[in-house]
Each structure stands twice: as C-alpha cells, then as structure tokens.
C-alpha cells in the first residue's frame, strides 16, 4: 500500500512538472521573446537639430523644408507670413546600416550643398532614463557664384561635427543635447572663424500622431556675425512613413553650417516666421 502511495506521489510530481510547461507536450519556446530596438525620438531630426535616430538599414529618407522670409507680423499684405520668398532645403538620405545614415542636401541660400553622415554610437537601455548617443559630421560647399572668388575657393567650404545625446522621460517626453562645432562659420569673412554652439531640444508626444516640439541653439563662442540665437517651436504630425513639422522660428536657415551660425532676428513675437519640414521614408 505504502509503495503504491509512493508511486502515485512520484507520478504526481512527474505530471505536475509536465503541466508546468502548460502544453502537455515536450515543446518549449526555442528562443526568448524578441526585444524591440530602443527608440527614443520618433524622427531623425528635431526641427533643425539632429536626433540620435537613424532611418534603419536600406531605407531612403527624402526631405523638403521651407522657411518663409516674411514674418507672421507682416500681416495681410504678406498673407501673414505665407508669401514668399522662402528658403528651402531638399535632402535625400540613405542608411546603408541600422546605425549609419548618409545625407546629401541643398539649401538655396548660397547654394549650400551639404554632405553629412550620422552614426549611432551607443544605445543604453538604462532605467529610469534610457540614452542614445550619436555623432554627426559633414561638410558644406557654398556653390553660389561670387565676383570676389572662384566657386572652389576654400572660403566656400564649411565643416562641422555634432555630438548628440538623447534621453526619454517616461514614454512621452524626449530630450536632446547637441554640442556642435562649426569651422568657417561665415563664408563672407576673409578669416575662417570657428564657432561652438550647444543645441537643446525637446519633444512631448501627445498621442500616436501629434507631438509638440521646441529647440534652441545658443552660440557659445564666435557669434560676431549673427547676434541672435535661433529658437523654434511647433507641432509634429507623424503618419506611416511621413513626418510633417509646422514651426514658428526666428531663423530662416536650414542647413547645419547655416543655422548653427545664429540668426539676425531676435526671438520675439514680431520676428517669428513660418516654416515646415516634410520627410518621407522609402524602403529600397
């Protein structure tokens, strides 16, 4: 009798260990659940400043941006800032790997052709604050014909490097710091000046589509030419492969070697101008 009890107890143990798998079979999940990649900001850029995000391997990113010269405050005669002229930027980026993106862009201000690379260095899934760190570097060639120099004159070339540190508070507030160094900050001067700026930006994601976005790029040194600090704020709409950003700003400059140098307009209600940015992601 006792032996039978022991046998049944052993059988029970065996049975319960089998039922722990919950399938009644010898099957077990072969590998642990996939962890999705760490993503903080949704877009690869704030307004002008870059985020640490890249589009991901084999994805093309097309971009078109405008900044209008007239101010909102110019009123009815300039359709409240929506009349031209406007500065515009066209860009095309390609991501050969998950961490790298190469972008070629042109701004019609000075015929500024910009070639840059952004590389994501570090993803840190730390709590409570996860971090992403990236570096962006590029060169710009101001191709506009000038009477005082040839197109290929070295004074027409500008170079920059930007460190990018991103973090996210909870699931809806993303913050970025972008220390930036620019060589030859003004193509109009004889002497090539260096400039150091610290870009700051933040974004609050309100729902799956809408977010509020703001950035400020104070120049720390080398601000002789443009005395004021560019600041922008606006809304970002995200749908499928698109981002739409509608902004108010005191700077009309679009390419990194241009917006990093500051703006001639003070940041105040009278000097705000309208700008937009549309990006489209395409799978290759």
């Amino acid at each position: 009798m006792r032996r039978l009890i022991v046998i049944s107890a052993v059988a029970t143990l065996l049975a319960s260990s089998a039922s722990a798998q919950d399938t009644g079979t010898g099957w077990k999940r072969a590998s642990p659940p996939t962890q999705p990649p760490l993503r903080l900001f949704h877009s690869t850029q704030a307004i002008s400043l870059p985020t640490a995000e890249t589009p991901g391997k084999n994805v093309l990113q097309f971009e078109i941006s405008h900044r209008f010269y007239p101010r909102f405050s110019d009123g009815f005669d300039y359709l409240y800032g929506l009349d031209g002229p406007a500065l515009m930027r066209l860009g095309l980026g390609y991501a050969p790997t998950d961490r790298l993106v190469i972008t070629l862009a042109r701004s019609n201000f000075g015929g500024n052709v910009d070639l840059q690379g952004k590389y994501e260095l570090l993803r840190l899934r730390s709590t409570p604050l996860p971090f992403k760190i990236a570096v962006q570097a590029g060169g710009a060639w101001n191709t506009q014909k000038r009477s005082d120099r040839t197109r290929g004159d070295s004074r027409n070339f500008q170079y920059y490097v930007q460190g990018i540190v991103n973090t996210m508070i909870g699931k809806s507030i993303a913050l970025g710091v972008v220390p930036s160094y620019l060589h030859n900050s003004s193509v109009n001067t004889e002497k090539k000046e260096n400039l150091f700026a610290v870009g700051l930006h933040g974004q609050v994601y309100l729902n799956h589509v809408l977010s509020v976005i703001a950035e400020w790029t104070p120049q720390v040194s080398g601000t002789e030419v443009m005395r004021h600090r560019p600041a922008s704020f606006g809304l970002e709409l995200e749908t499928g492969g698109h981002f739409f950003k509608l902004v108010a700003t005191n700077s009309v400059y679009l390419n990194p070697s241009q917006y990093l140098a500051g703006t001639e307009n003070v940041f105040g209600a009278r000097e705000l101008r309208f700008g937009f940015l549309i990006t489209r992601l395409l799978r290759t």
């Binding site: 996939t34 999705p36 993503r39 949704h42 991901g56 799956h208």
Partner: peptide
C-alpha cells in the same frame, strides 16, 4: 497544435513603420 509568432520580430523594412505597428 499550437503555433505562436513573436510579433516584436515583425519587420516591414522601415524601422519607423515597425515601431508604429508594435506600439500603435
């Protein structure tokens, strides 16, 4: 039978679209 698919591993070719699919 029992089959399961790990949805976090679904790849549409665009990282942002994957994120929307997973999160939204």
């Amino acid at each position: 039978f029992y089959f399961e698919v790990d949805l976090n591993a679904l790849d549409t070719g665009i990282g942002l679209r994957n994120r929307h699919m997973r999160e939204n």
